[in-house]
Design a protein around this nucleic acid. Sequence first.
RNA 1: GGGCAGUUAGCUCAGUUGGUGGAGCAUCGCCCUUACAAGGCGGGGGCCACAGGUUCAAGUCCUGUACUGCCCACCA
Length: 887
Amino acid sequence: MAEPLPKGYEPKDVEARWRKHWEETRVFTPDPGGPGEAFSIVIPPPNVTGALHIGHALNLTLIDALCRHARQKGKNVLWIPGTDHAGIATQNVVERALAHEGKNRRDLGREAFVERVWTWKEDYGNRILDQIKALGASVDWSRLRFTMDEGLSAAVRKVFVRLYDEGLIYKGKYIINWCSRCHTALADDEVEHEQRRGRLWRVRYHLADGSDSIVVATTRPETIPGDTAVCVHPDDEHYQRVIGKTVLVPVLGREIPVIADAYVDREFGTGALKVTPCHDHNDWMLGNKHHLQFIQAIDENGLMTSEAGPYAGLAKDACRKKIVADIEAAGDLAGSEDMEHAVGHCYRCRTVVEPHVSEQWFVAATKLAPAARAAIPELTRIYPESWIKTWNHWLDNIRDWCISRQIWWGHRIPAWTCPACGQLTVAEDAPSACKTCGANGLIQEDDVLDTWFSSALWPFSTMGWPEKTEDLEHWYPTSVLVTGFDILFFWVARMMMMGLHFMSKPPFRHVYLHALVRDAEGRKMSKSTGNVIDPLVMIDKYGCDALRFTLTAFAAMGRDIRLSEERIEGYRHFVNKLWNAARFALIHLEDMPAEITLDNVSGLHNQWLLHRLEAVKKGMDGAFAEYRFNDAAQLGYKFLWNEFCDWHLELIKPDLQSQDTERVKTAKYVLWLTLRETLVLLHPIMPFVTAEIWQSLPAAGQVTDIATEAWPTARPGCVRENEARRMEFIQEIIVATRTIKAELNIAPTRKTALLIHPVDERQAALLEACREMIIALARLESLRIDSPADAPKASASAVVQGCQVIMPLRGAVDLASELSRLDKELLKVEKDLTAADKKLHNESFIERAPEEVVRRERDNAARLRDAREKLLALRQRFAEALMDGEE
RNA sequence: GGGCAGUUAGCUCAGUUGGUGGAGCAUCGCCCUUACAAGGCGGGGGCCACAGGUUCAAGUCCUGUACUGCCCACCA
């Protein structure tokens, strides 16, 4: 039965207890044969090396809210947790640790190194799981996955082999992005371009016949030894004379052709471009088109090759200095200038990326992309929809995906080469002998797959594919993918391609892209800037629910979140408010209150509250369904605080003290029921505090776990617009009275007399029925509801919906301030009335606006006119009182 | 260069289908009213970036401009 709640909400103990409870009772472990419509989400697997950051906190909070809400709606909810092996990132971390021991991975050798990473993963990889727990994520821990689990690795191999057999994976020589620090190829989207200050040199190339020269502009003179052509625009009259001739590479003296291609921008630099096919993506394209020579001048370590002649062995930066100096010495430097240009950096280590020609594995993304493009919005809806254009543009311009990485940590490519005949065998399992020549000792590829290759399979590999599992049958495709837009292409697009190809269905019905969390100044949070907000610290300081509520409240679609600690602190007040409201309720609900019929509940305030509750239920339900998280949070916030606490709890205080047992009974039941339903509504956002309060509340029968409680059903009988409006009128009367007191500097606690002059019998009856409420909330000594004929002239007053509210003033009250108060009020009414009249005098408004709108405007004007008359009269009386007082 | 957002109170942001603009924080005043001072009550504060257009009516729809941010892109 009911237990008293401690005075202050202590998140730490409460959260720990509920986490344990939910884990032990396995309420988040669903059965594929269980009842309810299937609802599933796969976690965007955090990097196993990573610590939970605020972006994860947002992501997990939103997913958790959706899952908890879906569960409340009776769905069969599966949320699969897991982590990603994050190839390059994880390898880097372990290599750094090794470096501290003065070793590198080659000292250990491949096997020992990989073993070491696994050990590291076991030690540190579980930290992230504890952090997911700390956030209250209602994941199914029995289905925990890791991208390098045996099952998922088998899926990777199967996919690789199938794609290879279908010709959708191939090996080929291509210019790729090379990180000389990570010593691996990078996919196009793993390269981040940044504007950097650089220099543009103008270098003179002499014609081989010595007759002339041509000046070429370059930002990378160190690639000159790799030049195999100079290219100009075919229509450029400056260079017609040299097209088809040959020039000499500066310093080296090698003879190369001058070619013409419309690719060249005549306006840029000198209009002449040096072509270095091995060290520039566009030059690669030109080299192929014009069948140029391919000369590799820089190796994979960033050193100049023997092709660079006198510069061989130099680091590329040193070569740049030297070659510029040499050219200048030769008198062939035609000038140089500073310029800004985009430079590619490795997204993991920030090293400048070097275009590099090598043998790599590719997925024919160009062939898989069209289906993925067409899937949105036909098969999968994306929220917010504005991303469709970006999605289409990216998929329309996709290039084949380089999937081989020259690192050790990851899924090793399942391809073997025969040492005897060189035959390549691609297979799920290591072949014992060469199919062609029967030789043994086939050698597996050294490279591993891009991390995103296994992530691309995540929605079905986690459910047991390629086995035909019940999970797949029941829960694929997943209901919605929730992630940040920053990995739309890295991850979402690739999942879409793989899902469509292997499952014939898109991997998710909806994609919800949430914002990036930034700091208060709108900057990205990063360790180097020192502006990170650590979610674990926030949970520790303010409680998980406060953090979750804040993130949810700020998660408006299509907009970044600027987070600061003060905001979390602010929403902690809300958690506390809920807690205290519950404490109040529990004081009066020692036992389960007797049930009453709600459709015809007595008491205007009860009718109003239940009416509002219906609206909030509906509103929050819709908000969750459409991923309007901020709306859901706001609706819950306002209802709980501004309606339930500010009004209803105050309004039922007299009820609870009453001798009328029916009245007490009604108050208690409405209180109990509203609080319970509100807890359920808020539970998806604030699981812990709601769970704690829920179990303290008396219940009919066994106390249940709020996590398994159903979303409250609608009570159409409680929707009562008219009663709600009447209650709002009473509230306006009370506010007007309070305002008079506040503005005349009368202490709110000082009980005053009040006279209300209603406009008609109906209003009089309503006021009479609510007499007690008005007295209590406006803090009155007495209340008269009738004509003000004998009211003292020295009274403060207000007009509410035509009804005059009059407060006789006695004692030390600054009477002059009442006069200015009334003047201010009059001014406002005048202004509104002028605006309304202006509209009503506009003939086209009367003619064209809908009847309803015109009628409302007329009513409005009439109301204002009436208010003005009454205020003027009241002011007149008051002014007389002032005169009298002065005489 | 292309694309996408944003511009609303001092600050951070809401504002569903056009019908007199809201919240939190901050600020000012009064109150320790027996759930809550992490609180209550009340107030002040906005030509909704700018310029046009559509409309009886525009923060909301359209066009353009300015600034800010993000994404994409092969200007060497």
